[in-house]
Design a protein around this nucleic acid. Structure first.
Lengths: 341, 341
DNA sequence: GGAAGTTCTGGAAGCGCTTCCAATGTTTCC
DNA sequence: GGAAACATTGGAAGCGCTTCCAGAACTTCC
């Protein structure tokens, strides 16, 4: 059987309290005693039982990461950032994968009640009024990532500014018919990106044309942030009279589908249709896609850092960090060719 | 404060033992009593404390997934399979990300001693002799994924057969100078894939040419399974006298780099150089890369299923499941064009 | 020299559960 | 009618830790 703290105490000829104190290097202990205990620990290859410790302390040293089905480039990068910071603080991460956003509450309930984790990172998922209240009331640490909230801590990205950047860039390339392919508007980022698009049009005195905004509803998986939706939307856009010569697409995955549609129709990018995506996922490099970069790694790091701070200190100032985006110019927007001239 | 089992017991007018039994629906309990307890539970919104339960049962209902820096398409798909199965069994997954394979032991030690998890899935990482012994001795459930072992349970893929398939396919397309771009040979899969390649050459009476095997050592990140290594290797291959007209590349990420190199050199795929990759990561679709598909999702599922079985039953028969691969024909090998004729 | 601190240490109590044992009530069977 | 078997329940003990309290061993100070 695994050695317990009692075995260590006996071996070192001290009390269990002393062993515990050495383990948590709390209060002053004679260097000599400490060495003895440390010796015994090493000899027995003792390591504290995580559950027992958790129960006694009411702290688990784990945090939950709740995110939508994480099979996306987007989340990989975010997870990398989270990972790095979490390791630094010697925390463990428990991953909860939500395939249906409506079921988010289920996980929020579990994490709150079961007390398996010390805090929660809720990624790209909305929190219901009910659970917002519960978390606040319980003072249970939670940080929203890729999401904003008036009453909760959050780390997000300036979606509007990003969309604005993308659209403005296309207009600056000389396009006057600039369309947008968006995801389902029930998604908050989709809404905000649309706002940015509209604002850019307005600021540049380009009229907003209703039919130039295409949202495919053939495939609403992941709120329309998927390849097929982008493909379908582009097909639809190509059928438009006086179709746009440039399009801002609300995500890179959709853009990948759109590019495919263009290719199939024998159209060239950027000559026949200039494109700017959003997210700067790894794929964008391969496709030569001009896109909006979000500092995902940094966001992950920041979120974890703040969450751990919240776990340690009961009263912390609320954090609502909003990272800004930047444009990454590749081949799909036509700006590079211009540079070469 | 959160309600405990005592609160529930008091409210329902029963003993804590009874509540516990209802919770674990063990032994017989009068339906009437059961209803009363269930009522009390609902009224108090009671949920058992995971740590306390874990301590008492010596079971955590969590499993560790130890994998190399998981920022790869490869692991996403695997994780999806793991995820699905784990959810089915109501387990939680704790992710441990190992950036340096040499540090694997550190995590193996923690999981074994801290008893934070009931079992371990060790993905794509070698296990040292020392820890193999320890795990066996402790009877601690562990399943290797994407790895084989004589004495431990494992779920892997037929790398040799896959490489054989790929190489044979290229030869069948009429190529007589078929090269291979491999990763670092210290990686076991890289070795085995090389074997498959050689075997295919031999079986088809194509001589093995030493210089046609290119392994870039400019970038050995992830044992050479990276984009840059593929790019460099292809550049090198293009400089060869009587260079190959077809190449089997040991991973899709490397193939992506190789394609880039070809493109830069103004060469066309598959006309000037036919290519078959390995892994069938999502990117392969976008690139039109012919490749070897591994049933990653299924592997993840199987591994979890077996691990849970091991956790439940002390003595289980050893599982050494080896999934077979299949060829996915896309544009990069030239077979499609043939079909069209 | 002894009261009053100070420093270090031992171990009981308690964290919230499961599980075992004993107790009580109920039925069955001769 | 009573012994034996069975069904149901209550609650103590124990899982392995932390923490608090009290005691022991030294110092310090008048």
């Amino acid at each position: 059987m695994k050695p317990t703290i009692y075995d260590v105490a006996k071996r070192a000829g001290v009390g269990i309290g002393t062993v515990s104190r050495v383990l948590n290097n709390s209060s002053q202990i004679t260097p000599e005693t400490k060495t003895r205990v440390l010796h015994a620990i090493r000899e027995l290859k003792y390591q504290p039982h995580a559950m027992a410790r958790g129960l006694a302390r009411n702290k688990t040293h784990m945090m939950a990461i709740i995110l939508p089905s994480f099979t996306g480039y987007f989340y990989l990068e975010l997870l990398r950032g989270i990972q790095q910071e979490i390791t630094k603080y010697q925390y463990d991460m428990v991953l909860y994968n939500v395939d249906n956003p409506d079921r988010t509450d289920l996980f929020l309930q579990r994490t709150l009640r079961e007390r398996r984790v010390d805090g929660v990172l809720l990624v790209s998922l909305p929190i219901s009024e009910k659970y917002k209240e519960r978390y606040l009331r319980a003072g249970f640490p939670i940080v929203l990532v890729d999401n904003m909230h008036d009453e909760l801590d959050s780390v997000s990205v300036e979606n509007e500014q990003g969309a604005y950047l993308a659209t403005t860039h296309l207009i600056k390339q000389g396009h006057s018919r600039v369309g947008m392919i968006d995801a389902q508007l029930k998604s908050i980022p989709a809404q905000i990106r649309l706002n940015g698009y509209k604002k850019a049009l307005k600021d540049n005195h380009v009229p907003f044309v209703e039919s130039y905004l295409v949202i495919s509803d053939t495939n609403t998986d992941k709120d329309g942030f998927n390849r097929q939706a982008g493909y379908d939307a582009m097909k639809q856009m190509l059928g438009l009279p006086d179709r746009p010569t440039a399009v801002f697409i609300s995500s890179d995955v959709q853009a990948a589908g759109a590019l495919r549609a263009l290719q199939e129709s024998g159209l060239k990018t950027p000559q026949d249709m200039a494109i700017v995506g959003f997210d700067d996922i790894e794929l964008a490099q391969y496709l030569g896609l001009t896109t909006i970069h979000q500092p995902l790694f940094e966001m992950g790091r920041t979120a974890v850092e703040h969450l751990i701070h919240m776990i340690g200190n009961h009263e912390t100032e609320r954090l609502n960090r909003c990272f800004s985006t930047h444009l990454v110019i590749r081949d799909s927007c036509g700006a590079k060719q211009l540079l070469n001239n």
